[in-house]
Amino acid sequence: MKVFAFSKRNDLEILRDPLNLLFGVGFPIVLLLLLTVIQRNIPVALFEIEHLAPGIIVFGLSFMTLFSATLIAKDRGSSFLQRLYTTPLTAGDFIMGYLLPILPICIAQSVICFAMAVLLGLHVTIHILTSVLFTLPVALLFVSLGLLCGSIFTDKQVGGICGALLTNLTAWLSGIWFDLGLVGGAFQKIANLLPFVHAVEMERAVLRGDYAGVFPHIWWVMGYAAAVTAIAVFAFLRQMKRQ
């Protein structure tokens, strides 16, 4: 299958970049470790692992936007993508090839984070497995955001926008480190209109085994994922046509 060859290449490009591994796996693990150590030394429950792990996993997934956007923006900047445009690959193949192969990487990242969390004291339950499953819509959201950014920005811009802005938005507006209710006001309102806090709350509910608590958060995540994917497809096709 033509699209498999292209997908495999995209996976290899991402996995062979040591910086990607450092940020994609190393960073979330270090955060888990660090915050768990801090938790052990303070009297209040701030970073309990059941609460922390889902947040870190969502935060870790935000790096996938950076990876995929960088790959796409670099491809667009070099003649490599132009060469591929002259092959029988269709527009659909390109879009699938940029979206799908990153999803298994997302799953692997979540599995590694949960494994680390278990080492740090997270109880092993079936809910871990379902949590990994529920990361899929979150992963799709971040990966399609990568397709979108990669289609409209240069690789330098991507570094700033996805690497700095998006990861920080995800970090601060998701209630990973502190309860957004403590800040309240406009901050909380904005956070609730964005998908990040809903992704974290959804994951936390699943991990608790509280499947009713998944709602309405999952609608936010899936709604954003669907909308961003649609816009990203449009943006990619537009830049492809503009060649």
């Binding site: 033509k2 498999f4 060859a5 292209f6 495999k8 290449r9 290899l12 490009e13 062979r16 970049d17 070099s78 003649s79 490599f80 132009q82 060469r83 591929l84 092959t87 029988p88 690959l89 193949d93």
Partner: peptide
């Protein structure tokens, strides 16, 4: 401008093109 996939080996680059041509 030379158009190759930088993180792929020479062999993998050739395989990639074979793959996308079906």
């Amino acid at each position: 401008e030379t158009a190759v996939a930088p993180n792929l080996t020479v062999w993998e680059n050739l395989e990639l093109i074979a793959g996308v041509h079906g």
